[in-house]
Design a protein around this nucleic acid. Structure first.
Lengths: 205, 205
DNA sequence: TAGATTGTTAATCGATTAACAATC
DNA sequence: TAGATTGTTAATCGATTAACAATC
């Protein structure tokens, strides 16, 4: 498995370079990027080397070229269909966030819930009953899912997705789920993020 | 600054130990915990040593004692007031999640927004206009904030919070914000998490 | 040319793992 | 006692930083 920090940084490089571009810059030095992101210029150059991004000893790096390269690395034009299971407040927020995702090559194509009130097969992003989840994944060859169900349903839903050999799950439940041979799971725990922030900040005395 | 991974693990230890407790276990070995979390038993013992959690060579660790110790480390009974700026879909989801947070010593005490429709100073968790933010933070000695405003407002809001020397910010905007001498910022970027998952899963060929 | 920056190699740092003595 | 597990030290691993030759 590859260094996840490095991939995170690739995404922050993209963000900051777009900002540079917006204020009219054409070229940047590794120093500029390092300063903007609070990391060392060495690390920027190491990362660029790793991802095959090259510059010149004279003018540094061409922002446009880096951005093109990053999009190619991320496979941005290879659109990925993603489903969301659990259309509560968080799931619903992510569902309505689809326009932001679509700019990154991710297409939120459907939601799933058990609550009949939430169902709507006619809307732009349809919401289907959870018992249709397996069939939908198979028929549409879905590779990625976001799980925002209550804790009590988490285990079952993740097992179903694993059984379908889905490629990746972004898991927002507090269940710490493990990868399988075929399914990669990233756990995002907002409660933990907040607790960790409070703990760390409070011991900076 | 202390190893953030170690603190994350402390929180997952808590989760998994509660699960163990729920199925009736009293004692665990470092091996059990390692297996449940896919980490080595060595690391579990190292972490426990670091946080001052001790066991015995005979019966391993007493679950109840560890949990008590973890809550003490996290300062769970020292309630922290937290505000949310930006009551859109995500902010609103977090606001309604307050019961889960309160179990962890975090009290969501107010929200802020610019949209008059969102304001409500009468509800259990009041929502005030953003121009009252500074005053509220000062009057109530608020130490922590969650920022869920649109990208365009992010810089301004974070600058205001920094000016108030707030201790910690959980930043959900795509602005990569930097710590100051007095303010610690943790950035959570859901879009990045999803992109990273897709990228990593797609190159596991 | 002199100066500055990249690309890359070597050095450092820190986290994780392995090993094992102590001990229940 | 024999066996098993903790607590801790030593070894390993990998990521970041420092340094610098190449070069524009």
């Amino acid at each position: 498995m590859q260094n996840q920090e490095r991939i995170s940084r690739l995404l922050t490089y993209k963000n900051v370079l777009v900002q540079f571009q917006n204020i009219g810059l054409i070229k940047v030095f590794s120093d500029n990027i390092g300063d903007a992101l609070n990391i060392s210029a060495s690390l920027v150059r190491k990362d660029f080397g790793f991802f095959g991004i090259t510059g010149s000893q004279k003018g540094g790096y061409d922002i446009d070229s880096i951005l093109t390269r990053i999009d190619a690395i991320l496979g941005k034009d290879n659109i990925q269909n993603v489903i969301i299971i659990g259309i509560g407040r968080l799931g619903s927020a992510l569902l309505h966030h689809h326009d932001v995702f679509s700019g990154e090559g991710v297409n939120i194509c459907a939601g799933f819930d058990t609550d009949p009130e939430k169902l709507n097969s006619e809307s732009a992003i349809p919401v289907f009953p959870v018992n249709q989840l397996s069939d939908y994944v198979e028929e549409n060859k879905i590779k990625f899912a976001i799980v925002t169900v209550p804790e009590s349903a988490a285990r079952h839903i993740i097992d179903v997705l694993k059984a379908e050999h889905i490629k990746g799950i972004l898991n927002f439940t507090s269940l710490k789920a493990k990868n399988t041979e075929t399914t990669l799971i990233h756990n995002v725990n907002i409660e933990h993020e907040l607790t960790r922030l409070v703990y760390t900040a409070n011991r900076q005395d």
